[in-house]
């Protein structure tokens, strides 16, 4: 019984939140990795792109809520998500036209594009704060729980409860759908194949008559969809605050690099590695060990390796270890 209880505690506080957070990071890292693979630069504005898409979704959600539209037990934000993706796509295409295209034509060095993306980051950050303000916004509605801790306890008779929040399940389901769609697109469609070809060898792709501007436009559209979805899911699961999204840049980049920049599968693996590492190391394991160990050996302290505020340190440490010992990442990056 104690063993089961320990597993339930671990599931409830580490594994379920880890899967949800990992899915969010994976979606974010997929966007970073696609831009790196096709446009060949690290996009520092990605966190703020996520924030912008999420913001549009939130505004539409509020509009829908105002009109009395709801999605039953599911959050209204899911209905608003396509509008958010559309808004975000318009913004990134506009940015590409006005900003990035110039440097692409010039064949500027990647590091110049990174600095340019810093400028874009400033502007997007400012726009989001200007429109929705710098404060926390909650926009989740509908049923909060699929399974409450108390119901679980009554159902199983265990001492520990397992809660399953709607947002967590939605996150995982949406992420699976998004990733499946992405891989289908990249592997089965003509456009997707041309994107992979372009990422693999630009000159050869040009010679085969692939239109680079079309590839770039599709890339931005996909990135906008992924970024908005990631942003909305993160906002539903936690809450929406522009600054938090900016800070997500670090774990997202860590995920993409750990998995291997440019490799979509790597981005997903990296997302889960980072998410589980962050949550396991910052979670107090006292309760779990309390169930597993004999009473005499039970730990006194919280057995928390690091406090939650050091979660950046965890992403960072994993990043450094991977970079030092396996610089191409777990999945060998570089090409899609």
């Amino acid at each position: 019984m104690d063993f089961l209880n320990a597993i339930i505690v671990l599931l409830n506080f580490v594994i379920v939140p880890g899967i949800a957070y990992g899915s969010q990071l994976a979606l974010g890292a997929l966007g970073v990795t696609l831009i790196y693979g096709i446009l060949r630069f690290s996009n520092f504005a990605h966190g703020d792109t996520m924030a912008f898409g999420a913001m549009v979704t939130i505004l539409v959600t509020w509009g829908l809520q105002g009109m009395g539209v709801s999605f039953g037990p599911l959050p209204t934000a899911l209905l608003a998500l396509p509008f958010g993706i559309l808004g975000c796509a318009l913004l990134v295409l506009f940015t590409d036209r006005t900003v990035y295209r110039f440097y692409r034509k010039q064949k500027a060095e990647p590091v110049i594009l990174v600095i340019v993306s810093m400028g874009v980051m400033f502007i997007m950050n400012g726009i989001v704060r200007l429109i929705i303000g710098p404060d926390d916004q909650r926009f989740a509605d509908g049923e909060r729980f699929i399974m409450r801790a108390r119901d679980f306890k009554e159902m199983t008779g265990l001492a520990e409860g397992l809660a399953l929040r709607t947002s967590q399940v939605i996150t995982v389901v949406t992420a699976i759908i998004a990733v499946a769609l992405l891989f289908w697109f990249l592997n089965k469609t003509r456009t997707g194949k041309s994107m992979r070809a372009y990422s693999d060898n630009e000159d050869l792709a040009l010679l085969s008559g692939i239109n680079p501007e079309r590839v770039v436009v599709y890339t931005w559209l996909i990135v906008a969809a992924l970024a908005t979805t990631a942003g909305v899911l993160y906002g539903l699961d936690k809450s929406f605050k522009p600054f938090t999204y900016f800070q997500l840049l670090l774990p997202i980049f860590a995920s993409a690099i750990v998995g291997g920049l440019g490799s979509p599968i790597g981005a997903i693996v990296g997302g889960f590695v980072i998410a589980f590492a962050e949550i396991t190391i910052t979670y107090p394991l006292k309760k779990v060990l309390g169930y597993l160990m004999p009473e005499s050996l039970e730990p006194d302290g919280l057995v928390q390796l690091l406090t939650t505020d050091y979660k950046f340190a965890v992403s960072f440490a994993i990043l450094i270890v991977i970079l030092l010992f396996k610089p191409t990442g777990l999945m060998k990056g570089k090409a899609l």
């Binding site: 630069f41 990647p110 990174v114 800070q247 670090l250 980049f253 690099i257 950046f312 450094i320």
Partner: peptide
């Protein structure tokens, strides 16, 4: 590589603040 150094320094700055 330069982007990796950038992310690494970004991370270390956050850790110092933490």
């Amino acid at each position: 590589r330069s982007d990796y150094l950038a992310i690494a320094t970004l991370g270390i700055a956050e850790i110092i603040i933490a």
